[in-house]
Design a protein around this nucleic acid. Structure first.
Lengths: 138, 138
DNA sequence: CTACCTTTGCAACGTTGTTGCATTTGTAAT
DNA sequence: ATTACAAATGCAACAACGTTGCAAAGGTAG
């Protein structure tokens, strides 16, 4: 799906900053940080514009944050128009990439008595398939 | 355990700022934000001191961060001297408290083929036992 | 093409993270 | 208890980031 279509689908104006951000995220194949996105954009935008574009895209569920830790926040494309259902994220400690693991069901975590779960954030840290292969070569 | 003992156990100097922070966290019964801690301290400290105290306490595994989302970071006491093993955190959407769920085993999450998990961060959002009871009264 | 509403860029301000340095404080040895 | 040294503190200063107001520019529906 093209950036322009995504914006249309979400009833957002097609501005070049928004399209640029979306295109960079699509090209990144995985989650990417705000600074990396900024660096890969063709044009440069005022940081206020950039900041507001993120806010708009996030509020409209075009993208969502992936918080690895407080120093390490990335963005990924959302795959649903409405509120994103819970899904897990995988952080590779070797290549530092982040991927959404849509296959994982986060709902069925057993809680202690009395607690009632609604949604869950799960970040799994480890080694991704590509880096596993690298290891195998040694 | 007293704040002074905790500091001694970790071979850290007993300064009033550090003791104050630890005492406030103990009294809080659950995770608490940096600003809330600052507000509940008897004396006031320079923000640099405060900042450095947190850094020291965190690096030495006296306390650990709980990141609910990027606007909502709290601190809780760690229960181990060495690197904290993974455990889940529970965030109550009604009373906004955060508790460590040490009972939950975070290790056995089934990953897709090729992925190798090392540790996991889990935040479960929902309703805590106390707020459940509140609901039952209605 | 026009008119209207939204977004943009800029200026400005507040908050937070961080460092260097002189002073003060905690602690272990005397 | 006193001393001496390493470590922590407070202050100044700076960078990065979040946020707002406002005038100018841009996107879109008619």
């Amino acid at each position: 799906m093209e950036a322009a279509d995504i914006l249309n689908d979400h009833h957002l104006k097609r501005t070049s900053c928004r399209e640029g951000i979306i295109n960079v995220i699509i090209a990144a194949h995985g989650a990417i940080s705000e600074n990396d996105i900024k660096a890969r954009l063709d044009s440069s935008y005022d940081r206020t514009t950039f900041y507001r574009s993120f806010k708009t895209l996030e509020k409209n569920n075009v993208i969502h944050k992936v918080i690895i830790d407080s120093q390490n926040v990335k963005y990924a494309l959302s795959h649903h128009h409405d509120r994103q259902e819970s899904h897990a994220h995988f952080y590779c400690q070797k290549c530092h990439t982040v991927q959404c693991l849509n296959e994982i069901n986060v709902q069925n975590i057993q809680l202690p008595d009395g607690y009632s779960g609604d949604e869950a954030e799960v970040i799994i840290k480890g080694t991704c398939p590509d880096c596993q292969k690298e290891n195998a070569k040694d």
